[in-house]
Design a protein around this nucleic acid. Structure first.
Lengths: 152, 152
DNA sequence: CTGTATCCTTAAAGATACTG
DNA sequence: CAGTATCTTTAAGGATACAG
């Protein structure tokens, strides 16, 4: 492909309006959350311990996510200059506090798990299969909080 | 799970296919969060109001995210059969409760915003530019929680 | 052991023309 | 107005060989 074309990235066009949002996005990713929770729960861990402790993570993603967490000050990387090298990752105080917020979210999910599953089932029942393309029939099936069609 | 070994494995601690995780992932996305917060804060809104209210969202993403939120039971879509059509999106009680969890997260981010920015600056100073490839110099610059090199 | 560099595939997102 | 369909671009992620 062609190159050298200095592209204007989205960052240029949509400068991160809210730094808070940006921080949350950085920290609330799928892998970040799991790593933070694990480190807070179990204390300092080595690279391979984390790799084995987090189901399905690739070596690359573990490295990248750890680097981001380190950069944000949520984990500290400690190198023991032995051979072979030993590296430990430790959650900082900030990370321990973050755990509380995550727990809150998890609590909410747990509390509403049933309702959400039910809502999904109802939704899928309402708009069964691929018929959405041809236009939505604006009818509900009588369930609790379905889309309503108020009288004109 | 699969073993009679008395040892506690990572699998036991970290059960795969956690529905809670899935729900959080579904609901905590970049756009979902903003839509929920906006709807909870301002009450029912129309499609174009949302489009204008959320900086940078594309029409397609707005539609997709609204559909997911509707499916999860976080927003209710109400169609007024007028012409031209009027559609309102309303946050449900579940969504209003979720707002609390998001607020917690936002609070954490706000509290630590300075520290995070500082950590990032320190990190970037430590490993300036692209030199990571050639091997990391294991030195810290004396800041608070930098990576340490314990004595052998 | 602890990563990094590289290649490749897939999923997410943007732009936008078009429709009921 | 409120979307949907479609095409294209971009980012995320997985696999893995290899290095210090």
């Amino acid at each position: 492909m062609s190159q050298g074309n200095s592209r204007v990235t989205d960052q240029d066009i949509h400068p991160v309006a809210c730094p808070i949002r940006e921080i949350i996005d950085s920290v609330a990713g799928k892998w970040s959350v799991q790593i933070v929770l694990l480190l807070v729960a179990r204390g300092p861990m080595r690279f391979t311990e984390l790799e084995r402790g987090i189901e399905g993570i690739s070596r690359r993603m573990l490295t990248l996510t750890l680097r981001n967490l380190e950069r944000d000050g949520l984990v500290v990387r400690t190198v023991f200059p032995t051979v072979p090298p030993r590296v430990e990752y430790t959650a900082t105080q900030m990370a321990r506090e973050l755990r509380g917020a995550f727990a809150e979210l998890a609590d909410w999910a747990r509390r509403h798990q049933e309702a959400i599953m039910a809502a999904r089932a109802a939704y899928d029942r309402r708009y069964a299969a691929e018929q959405r393309t041809a236009g939505r029939p604006e009818q509900d099936t009588g369930s609790a909080e379905s889309a309503t069609v108020p009288a004109t």
